[in-house]
């Protein structure tokens, strides 16, 4: 057999599977989003309604517009927060030495923990009567003792973001530690000889060198934040009210509690488009000369 055929043959199973698992469903979802299809009334799509579902979302459904805002708040907070948390961890632990490398072994654990388990557990930890987080926080900050963490909209969103940061920060820090340790030590040494304080050399030497890794971490995290579902479902249930109902969660509710397949697909599709636009903008900004390809 010649390479000419082999190279396609080797690729074929993967391309077929990717098509069957993503491309085809994506097209299918696109078609459904133009249909009126309520599963509670009919086993098959009833009508072709063109853009009605999208029209309804943007002009006739405050809950959808709310979910759009919630999504943007969550993505901004959790992407920014997780990268900052990761940077903080990296700065603490990017040192040579046995103690540090043992401490670094812990960093993979939060990421390996199932988000579903994390959501259920953190919900218990935040319970005002018997939660460990609540108990610790009330001791540290007595003026917050009366707060029902998941019962007020501001705090629920805060905890949604913090939960996500706990999962991702340590993982992103592993990427950043790699970047930090690869900064040549004589660059830092030179800055010190020139009389730069740790603070100035962080801003003038470390941060610029780390920028490419930070940028990648940020893009990666933004994409995953858009897709996040588990924490909303298990930690806050979208509440209180609709204050943490992200687009993913709202599409899920429309699809699997209201059984409105057409409308749910339309919402999911808007989310996918939003993600495409945001990542396109990022790639433009970060890799201006097409370095990504």
């Amino acid at each position: 057999m010649r390479d000419r055929h082999l190279k396609y043959l080797l690729m074929m199973p993967a391309l077929l599977l990717v098509t069957a698992t993503v491309i085809y469903p994506l097209g299918y979802a696109g078609i459904i989003s133009f249909m009126d299809w309520r599963l509670s009334r009919s086993r098959v799509p009833t009508d072709f309604v063109f853009l009605d579902n999208f029209w309804r979302a943007f002009f006739d459904d405050p809950s959808f517009l709310n979910s759009l805002g919630v999504t943007i708040t969550f993505v901004a907070g959790s992407a920014g927060g997780a990268v900052l948390f990761g940077l903080l961890i990296a700065l603490l632990l990017a040192r040579r030495g046995r103690g540090y490398s043992i401490a670094r072994t812990v960093l993979v654990l939060p990421f390996a923990m199932s988000p579903a388990l994390q959501g259920t557990s953190f919900r218990f930890f935040l319970n005002p009567e018997f939660g460990i987080f609540d108990a610790v926080l009330d001791t540290l900050f007595p003026f917050l003792a009366h707060v029902d963490w998941l019962g007020s909209s501001g705090w629920a969103m805060t905890w949604l973001i913090l939960t996500d940061m706990w999962h991702w920060g340590p993982f992103l820090s592993l990427m950043l530690i790699g970047g930090l340790l690869s900064i040549p030590s004589d660059t830092l040494e030179a800055a010190r000889v020139d009389g730069a304080s740790a603070w100035t050399s962080f801003w003038t030497v470390v941060l610029p060198q780390l920028m490419p890794v930070l940028a990648i971490a940020f893009v990666l995290k933004t994409i995953f934040s858009f897709k996040m579902f588990d924490y909303v479902y298990l930690l806050t249930g979208g509440g209180p009210g609709e204050s943490t109902s992200t687009m993913t969660y709202y599409a899920f509710r429309m699809g699997f509690t209201a059984y409105d397949m057409g409308y749910a697909s339309a919402i999911a599709f808007v989310l996918a488009l939003l993600l495409v636009v945001v990542s396109a903008v990022y790639f433009r900004l970060l890799f201006p000369r097409g370095e990504a390809g």
Binding site: V18, P25, L26, F226, F229, S265
Partner: peptide, 15 residues
């Protein structure tokens, strides 16, 4: 394809 949110894919898969 990794950019595609799972919620988009799961609806058609369910059907």
């Amino acid at each position: 394809t990794q950019f595609v949110p799972p919620i988009v894919v799961v609806l058609p898969f369910f059907l």
